[in-house]
Computed example of a mutant assay.
Amino acid sequence: MTNERRMSVLRAVIEDYIRTHEPVGSAALTRGHDLGVSSATVRNDMAALEDEGYLIQPHTSAGRIPTEKGYRYFVDKLATVVPLSKAQKRGIRSFLSGSVNLDDTLRRSARLLAQITGQVAVVASPSLARSALRHLEMVPVSSATILVVVITDTGRVEQRTIIAAERPGDDTLSRISAKINTACTGRSLRRAGNDIRMFAGDESSPINRSLLEALARVCDELATQEQSSNLYMAGTSQLTHRQVVDMNVIAPLFDALEEQAVIMRLMTALSEVTQSHGVGIAIGSETHTPGLMNASVVTSGYGQSTADDDGGSGQPSGTAEPVAFIGSIGPTHMDYATTISAVRAVAKYLTEFMANEENSPDDDSTD
């Protein structure tokens, strides 16, 4: 589309439809927007936009509504994103600072995002595959059982037990733990497992070698957990209590939300592809999910993995990646500017919370 005036008409139609959820006519556009042309000219532009697939006319002699193609053009050309208010920023900080642990933080983040957008919010807990080892501890439980506690840089705490034919002494356990923590802190769990397996070759004692090999298997197991099973969701009640509810849209959306594995794959992939304004956006058929054909998804990665992982190449990647995603799901006529702003802001504060920042900077350029 090269006609600037026509682009302005399309933007005005979408803005009005997002606000009213009613088909938009040329007369209303002329009254409500400074388009600089007559109602007849606007009507001609709307007809051209319909021919080009950006608008449709749901009923004869009714106004027009945007198509998926229209929404995509609107989102891609969205010039500004509404900044969150100071009260909303304080609300984010308050919600996160009042958390007792990581799971509570993620649950609170989902509730907060749902309140801001009036849509369904989804937050995934960090992926162990993208986490770095922060600390490993071995705790003797019995003469043959050792509890292995693995703490990651994302705050996840995993516990596994090792059954040993003969348990090493406490001094040996302390020495091995210290060696692993010194050499492997900051490395991905996969690489930590490989390093621990190499340490086993340096041990002369069969008992110690067996222990190190068991520890390597623990790291391998954790590293293969590509996605966390924890998915925090909030906002279904907000969506159903909106003034205008189209059950033809909402019912399939709720069915899709029941398929958490599908939602997990969709939003993980989307959060890894940054589009407009630093978020990933899928509209209708772009979700490739039957229940979301009349819905849009806005998502962002959060957290930054510091894992030193060579990806199998032998050289550390040195690239920080998000550890999980946060996103909003709603009808295609959602308020994209506000939703983008909210998703981005909550992801930012969540990232800073996980990095143990005491105060989040008030920077409107990223909110």
Score class of each variant (00 low, 15 high):
Met1Ala: 12
Glu4Thr: 13
Arg5Ala: 08
Arg6Gly: 00
Ser8Thr: 10
Arg11Gly: 07
Val13His: 05
Glu15His: 14
Glu15Asp: 10
Arg19Ala: 14
His21Pro: 02
His21Glu: 08
Ala27Val: 15
Ala28Met: 10
Thr30His: 12
Ala40Asn: 14
Thr41Gly: 02
Val42Met: 04
Leu49Cys: 01
Leu49Gln: 01
Tyr54His: 12
Leu55Tyr: 03
His59Lys: 11
Gly63Arg: 01
Gly63His: 01
Pro66Lys: 15
Glu68Gly: 15
Gly70Glu: 06
Arg72Phe: 10
Val75Cys: 03
Val75Arg: 02
Lys77Phe: 15
Ala79Arg: 13
Thr80Tyr: 07
Pro83Phe: 04
Ser85Lys: 00
Lys89Cys: 13
Ser94Gln: 14
Leu96Phe: 07
Asn101Phe: 07
Leu102Trp: 00
Ala110Lys: 01
Arg111Gln: 11
Leu112Met: 11
Leu113Cys: 01
Thr117Ser: 08
Gln119Ser: 10
Val120Glu: 01
Ala124Gly: 14
Pro126Asp: 00
Arg130Pro: 02
Ser131Ala: 09
Ser131Cys: 10
Ala132Leu: 09
Arg134Asn: 12
His135Asp: 15
His135Ala: 09
Met138Thr: 15
Pro140Gly: 07
Pro140Arg: 05
Val148Arg: 10
Thr154Tyr: 01
Gly155Lys: 07
Glu158Tyr: 09
Pro168Trp: 03
Asp171Lys: 10
Thr172Glu: 13
Thr172Gln: 15
Arg175Asn: 08
Arg175Pro: 07
Ser177Pro: 10
Asn181Cys: 14
Thr182Phe: 15
Thr182Cys: 14
Thr185Met: 05
Arg187Gly: 04
Ala192Asp: 00
Ala192Leu: 03
Ala192Glu: 03
Gly193Pro: 02
Asp195Trp: 15
Arg197Gln: 10
Ser204Arg: 15
Pro206Trp: 02
Asn208Tyr: 07
Arg209Cys: 00
Val218Thr: 12
Cys219Glu: 10
Leu222Ile: 04
Gln227His: 12
Tyr232Trp: 10
Met233Asp: 03
Met233Thr: 13
Val244Ser: 09
Val244Gly: 03
Ile250Thr: 08
Ile250Glu: 01
Pro252Val: 07
Ala256Asn: 03
Glu259Met: 11
Glu259Gln: 14
Ile263Val: 13
Arg265Ser: 15
Met267Leu: 09
Ala269Val: 14
Ala269Lys: 10
Leu270Arg: 05
Ser271Thr: 05
Glu272Asp: 12
Glu272Tyr: 07
Val279Lys: 00
Val279Arg: 02
Ile283Glu: 06
Thr289Pro: 09
Met293Val: 08
Asn294Met: 08
Val297Ser: 02
Val297Tyr: 02
Thr299Ala: 13
Ser300Asp: 07
Ala307Val: 05
Gly311Cys: 07
Gly312Glu: 04
Gly314Met: 06
Ala324Met: 05
Ser328Thr: 00
Thr332Leu: 12
Thr332His: 07
Thr338Met: 12
Thr339Glu: 06
Ser341Asn: 13
Val343His: 00
Val346Arg: 00
Ala347Pro: 15
Tyr349His: 13
Leu350Phe: 06
Thr351Lys: 01
Thr351Met: 02
Phe353Val: 08
Met354Arg: 13
Ala355Pro: 02
Asn356Ile: 12
Asn356Met: 11
Glu357Ala: 13
Glu358Val: 09
Ser360His: 14
Thr366Val: 15
Asp367Arg: 05
